[in-house]
Amino acid sequence: MKFLIQRWIPRLVLAPSFLLVVLFVYGFILYTGYLSMTDSKMLPSYGWVGFENYSRLFGLRHWNTAVTNLAIFGILYIGISSALGLFLAILLDQKIRAEGFIRPIYLYPMALSFIVTGTAWKWFLDPGIGIENTMHAWGWASFHFDWIKNRDYAIYTVVMAAVWQSSGFVMAMFLAGLRGVDNEIIKAAQIDGASGVTIYRRIIIPMMRPVFLSAFVVLAHLAIKAYDLVIALTGGGPGRATELPATFMYSYTFTRNQMGVGASSAIIMLIMIFSIIVPYVYSELKSGDQQ
């Protein structure tokens, strides 16, 4: 009897949330997949059109811009955030004074929503009121920084704001990893005469591999679903220069009355995320088996 209760209680307790997740996450993923193969315009409709929406999607200039932007944004955002996070973590790991005070300062941007970050950076970067204007007021009249108004450079301002927001978080992840390194190994290396730089380069950073992987997964999915930052920072402009797949998906589904195309772009985004998450989960499971 007791055995039975022990066996069934957890399942009963979990069942409602499990059902909700199945329905509202996976159910709607399937529904979106189905919609992407229909002729849905303003409201969902169920005329089957096969892969027509996908071929239309990849014919759209707008979608190509969004995907190109995602590539630029994703690579720079993940690369710079990881490098900067690791660098900050190594500096903080030097047993410096007031670490407990400094650490939260770097971590703090993560507590803001992307909307706040985007709005604040929009003001910093606006030549009329932000950095450029301040520099001019201070007498540096030749200072020129109008990337946010330039369609070729605007996407890099999105990277800046996103890096500012996330690198502190990556730093915290690396700091935890660095603190987990066995002191004995470092001492052994020091006895062998390795310098500080060599210890980090040859021993500690290679040991951070799992942290790199986790940071990559967290940052990659943030990059793919990036929506609020772009909306707040540039509104997708100048022109359509900073559209990302998420903003594309929203505008086609909800404001352009082309729900079929919007749904197909959502499915493509899902596939992108899967192609990152599945190898990660798989490698995690495999390393779990070995232990």
Partner: peptide
């Protein structure tokens, strides 16, 4: 319709 309108927007703003 909205789809056409936004397509024209894209070209005009570009």
């Amino acid at each position: 319709p909205a789809a056409v309108k936004n397509a024209i927007y894209d070209v005009v703003t570009a």
